[in-house]
Design a protein around this nucleic acid. Sequence first.
DNA 1: TCTGGGGTCCTAGGACCC
DNA 2: TCTGGGGTCCTAGGACCC
Length: 505
Amino acid sequence: MHVDADSFFASVETRHKPSLARTPVLVGGAGPRGVVATANYEARAFGCRSAMPMSQARVLCPTAMVLTPRFGAYAAHSALIMDTLRQLSPLVQPVSLDEAFVDLAAGPFAADPVVAADLARRLVYNRCGLVVSVGLGRSKLIAKLASDEDKPHGFTVVPGDDEDEFLMPKPVGALWGVGPATQATLRTLGIRTVADLRAAARDELVRALGEAAGWNLYRLARGDDPRPVVVEREAKSVGAEQTFAQDLLRWELPGALDAVLARALRRLARHGGGARTVTVKVRLSDFTTLTRSVTLAHPTAEADQLREAATAALTAAKAVEPVRLLGVSLSGLTHWAQLRLPEDATGSGVEDPDSLKVTTEPLSVGTAPGEPLPAVEGTGSRDGEVLDEAALRSFADDEPEDSDEERLPAPLTLHTVAVGLDVAHPEHGAGWVVKSEDGHVTVRFEGPGTGPGPERTFDVRREPLMRVAPPEPCPPPRLTSLAGLGEVEDLTAKLLLPGTAPPTP
DNA sequence: TCTGGGGTCCTAGGACCC
DNA sequence: TCTGGGGTCCTAGGACCC
């Protein structure tokens, strides 16, 4: 089963902001260089799409409400959706915040996949008011295409016998892994549909697309997709990047690199352990993109070492100003990290790992490679150079971004205010920022449990407004029925969780 | 209208090793 | 004496996904 929440970010927004129901909503970067992350269906009617420059979307749909993303709220809803799916089978593979594969054969519904799929959409709706599309098939390929088939609120079952009929007419671009470039290449071969693809010779595909992609498409065109549902995968890299509202000049680069690196380091700290390779990405104003990487002799979690490597990589890129984007990616991740060694042992250019081993103390007692390390701090380094949340925060302080980690509640300032954020007023209660204009913030006081609420405008220099955490996911005002699912009703009763109202007939 | 940010995977070339 | 074949690791770029 493949489950996909419909226009996920936008749906969470309208769930929390009842006054926006049935009106166009765009979620994404509201700044000059933002793009649309999600447009709801009302906005799509005007031609707005994901990945479109926000400036363009605003022209297409001037009446749309443009909201800054609230990742905390999306993560909470995502967790609830995934939890719900795990009640149908232990084998759940989240693909992103809003999407997951479920191996129903591994759960109690092995014999009733259709019931499970129906249950999935109803349970998710009743627990948080979000609508999902589900697809059922014998493979990930088919299930994913099936969930795409008639969204929103789709429910498509493709029995094994119908796979060819379902697959053949689809454009090749519908297949996972076939983007614009591959489509263009295939078009030169006269291949537009999966049927065309199936008629192509394997060697021809491999010649045109390379070993991996050619083989892959050859098999997918035949409905041959043995990929299993995998519950957990190790992260291979963590990183951060930022497109600046205005291009940076050369003298601004070191400071900007530090700030981006700080965010990457925070993610590394969350992952636990160290990294061996630092890759710096530079996008120039003409959009040409360069990457330069530095690989260390040993994985490390030390900010100084990683910063040194990042600086070296940036220098190697020989970037010419103006610079539009800077990024830092840390790869070669381990769950353990090399501590700083005495000066004489760490002289640059030490390449032979064995020569270092003698002086290397065990990193953290009782933690083997592969075992997650709770935190890097406190591993015994004396110079305090090991990653430390507080220290890192201190040099990333000037960043208004990263609201996802900010501690809430916090006073709303003109620096942190953005349309869509959750706020609270001591008298009027909880609401969200509708507008912010020269010191005056307009708030609409409503939430997932209220109807459309009233608007009020405040002078934030006088009136105390607090930024608060988003509302918790909660059942919608009207639940959908779980009746009519036959013998499984007993089971569904068991699956209903505390806090979820009983089904209405 | 002027192009986000988090990732994964693949390819090709070069260095290096046996 | 005039050039094999296996492999790994690293780097840069690019395609792709949501």
